[in-house]
Amino acid sequence: MRSGHFKERTEQLIVLSDSAPVWAWSAVLVVALAAAPYLLNAYLLSFVVLILITATGALGLHLLTGRTGLISLGHVGFLLLGAYAYAVPVAKYGLSPFVGFALAGTAPALVSVLVGIPSLRLKGLYLAITTLAFSFIIAHLVLQMSWLTNGARGIQVPRPEMFGISFDSDIRFAQLCLFVATITLFGVLNIERSRVGRALMAVRDNDIAARTMGINLQAYKLRAFMTSAFVSGIAGALFGIYLSFVTVEGFPFLMSIEALAILIVGGLGSTLGVVFGSIFIVLLPEVGRTALSLLGENAAKLFSTGANELRSVLYGVAIILFLRFEPRGLVGLWGDRKRLWVNWPLRF
């Protein structure tokens, strides 16, 4: 009788999942998500779309912060660049959306090299600050280069048409986002189980040890930076299409913070956590709204003036309480539930 979970070959260690139920449930999830656009109304669907786009963007940051341990406070800079790299050629010069998406990925990746090379000497918070500075400088340049970007006026972005399919309808666009998010998720999972992924993890956990093992710190950090920027750029392009209107104001600094919040609330370093975190952060403001509407008309009267802020207060309190009682993030909570299920009636 097997009395434990044995892994005897390297392949077993690096396989995405060796559990049939996990694969089965993942398949169910994919089917459910694929079917969702046809079942949900446009309002609920817009949440699905927003979660998918947010998850894609957060996965980009996850590669950098969660896996490589490089904190970025300037994530929004890459999202912004991606959105403009898509919007300018497609909406302004009428090029194919393929060109747009290609640029949305490569432009931020190239810029990330510019940011990355000088800042890789820096560690921890100092790196975080350079990325923060970078995101402000990017926003400034976009505003100044109005011959290319329309400056503060912004660019109206149409829904794309690719492979002869028009993504004009919400259903089609949701499917596009689902496609991109799934590809990204698999990509990230696969990077993690490759040599590169393990090297990044080594850099994160102990860079000096990693160096002695023959890992070129600069090269791997730069690689993490570029991949992260690429993925974030694509998410930025999708976000721009979703907004249908790209301006610098649509990408506030708050988004960088929110992206970090997603990683931490989900469980730092966990890819599954990114997905959980995205769902949590996107839906959190809605919970307050729903709670308020349940209270009915009279409560709504109360909220005629400043009292609306109560909802924002609750949003902040929810984040604080969550981290207070579950600092490992949602993924820790998920692990507890799973263990409870497997070990029941034993506690451990």
């Binding site: 446009a42 309002y43 817009s46 927003l50 907004l243 209107f245 649509g250 506030p252 809605e286 609306n308």
Partner: peptide, 18 residues
């Protein structure tokens, strides 16, 4: 309330229509 954030405006407008 959208807090002047375009994504939330989109959500709210969708919700009100749908």
């Amino acid at each position: 309330d959208d807090g002047y954030v375009p994504t939330r405006t989109i959500q709210s407008v969708r919700k009100m229509i749908e």
